[in-house]
Amino acid sequence: MASIAQPSSGLGQTVRKSLPAYGFLSPWLIGLFCLTAGPVLASLYLSFTNFDLIQTPRWVGTANYERIFTNDPKFIAAMKVTFTYVLLSVPFKLAFALMLAMALNRGIQGLSIYRAIFYLPSLLGASVAIAVLWRQVFAGDGLLNAVLKWAFGYQGPSWISNPDYALYTLVSLSIWQFGSPMIIFLAGLRQIPQDMYEAASLDGAGPMRQMFKITLPLLTPVIFFNGVIQTIEAFKAFTPAFIVSEGTGGPVDSTMFYTLYLYLEGFAYLRMGYASALAWVLVVIIAFFTAFSFLSAKYWVHYDD
């Protein structure tokens, strides 16, 4: 009687079958564990220590966190600046991106060229070079003031040296990088079936009513996605503030972004433990915002399925 062949060992066979897959994944896995997960966990440990990069970390318990929340006026200042930046740059950037996406979605000729041109700032925007350029444009004797003087005879202030304007200059730099959300909005707009608009026009809805009753509700999944991504990006913003303020967060801490403060604590003052604690507080803040976004989504995001 023929015997039925039994699998030698279920688990062993599964592992053997998966080995080639893990082999191909190994560069990414090594990167994940050594360059991302390892440092992340190390920073969690360091946040409970005093560490100046030279001596061995010294365990201080929750002292770093206590200081953050009870005895650090700069933390409060950085939070104010960062929250102002997030609350201004994200809605304005999204609104601007959506507006342009809607304009591009009207079936204009040469769409791909315009799309590429509008996307360019996003490719360049986060770079050091553009931040340097931005500094030149918004300086007291910069391009913007030259144009203002030529066009209106108005001598503008130094937009980056004046604490009243410096942050808003950085907000405008952020809005200028609207390309990525614009492309995603454009893809989202193209997903809305044309017959939805035809049905709405038969129902007597004009362009504005179509936008508020059809386009925006049907675009909410994309608005939600862009909102979450851009909020996280805004909380993490660093390069523009670092370059424009020349690494000081000035004038008068007006561009002291949270990440810049974190960087100064870690790499300028060599308080790595404290910087790690600041980083983990930022993680919790971002996680809170993201969780809040997801919880609120069921009240305003319309998924088709």
């Binding site: 017959d195 035809e198 049905a199 059809i214 049907l218 909410t220 319309h302």
Partner: peptide, 9 residues
């Protein structure tokens, strides 16, 4: 419409 074109939201 062929696709019904109902407003899904």
């Amino acid at each position: 419409f062929q696709s019904y074109a109902l407003y899904p939201h």
